[in-house]
Amino acid sequence: MITIEELRTEEEVVQIFPLMKDLRPYLDEARFREIWRTMQPDGYRIYAMYDDGELVAFTGIQIRMNMYYFRHVFVHELVTSAGRRSKGYGEKLLTFVHEWGRENDCVTVALKSALTRDAAHRFYEEKMGYDCFCYSFKKELVE
């Protein structure tokens, strides 16, 4: 049985750290906790997906407002356990995000994906109907 639950406490959230580490290998647990605590006042939420009680995927989302997406859900993370990929968990979890966004008066779901993640790009475009319409740029300020 598949369930999706919001993780609200730090003790609950830390259980997804091994999956977060797959996506963001540069994070250690202390930094992960610190960043999570900092993002809370801005409405960052983590939803975990379980299959028969086993954690298989999670997403980190936040409602944002801007001039080009308007009120939207921004997907910071969407991660499925390496051994559970291509089994429909990502599709179910992202569909949950779409429904959650509609329930929260959002008109768009937006996300970023690293240039090297070709399989993720195919998933977003071909399976989930997302449009790839721009590049995202960054400049490091700390040397």
Rank of each mutant, 00 (worst) to 15 (best):
F70C: 15
I46P: 00
G83S: 12
K138L: 08
Y50W: 02
S136N: 11
D52C: 06
E99G: 04
V107R: 15
F133S: 13
L7H: 10
Y68W: 15
D52P: 05
R24F: 09
D51Q: 13
T38G: 07
I4F: 04
L19R: 02
M49D: 01
Y124N: 02
M67Q: 06
S81E: 14
T38I: 10
F123Y: 07
M49G: 02
T9K: 04
E11I: 00
Y69E: 09
R84H: 12
Y135S: 10
Y69G: 11
A120H: 06
M65S: 07
E6K: 10
M39V: 13
R8C: 13
R85T: 07
F137L: 05
V73L: 04
F32G: 08
N66G: 04
V73M: 03
V56R: 06
E11A: 02
E5L: 10
Y50F: 09
L55A: 04
G83F: 05
K127N: 13
D51E: 15
V109K: 10
Q62S: 09
I61T: 05
F32E: 05
Y130C: 14
G129V: 09
E103G: 08
C106D: 06
V97M: 00
F17D: 04
E103H: 09
T108W: 15
A119E: 04
R8D: 12
Q62C: 15
M67C: 11
L115A: 15
I46M: 04
E91C: 11
E10F: 10
D22L: 15
P18I: 03
K21T: 11
E99A: 05
G60L: 07
L7S: 12
G129P: 09
M128V: 06
T59W: 05
G101R: 05
T108H: 15
V109G: 08
L115G: 13
Q40S: 01
I35D: 10
L27G: 08
F133N: 13
E143N: 10
Y47M: 10
A57P: 05
R45Y: 08
E10V: 13
I35V: 11
F74G: 04
K112V: 13
T9I: 01
D51I: 08
D42V: 13
V13T: 05
M1A: 06
C134H: 08
H121Q: 15
W36V: 06
V14L: 01
Y124E: 00
E125H: 14
S86N: 13
R45M: 07
W36P: 02
W36L: 03
D118Y: 14
L7T: 08
Y26F: 14
V107P: 03
Q62V: 14
T80Q: 03
F74T: 03
W100G: 00
V142W: 06
D118R: 15
E140C: 00
E11L: 02
V75S: 02
K112C: 15
V73F: 03
F96H: 02
K87R: 13
S113K: 11
D28T: 12
V56K: 08
N104E: 00
M39E: 12
M20A: 04
H121R: 11
E125Y: 12
I35Q: 12
E77I: 00
Y26E: 10
Y44W: 12
S136T: 12
A114C: 07
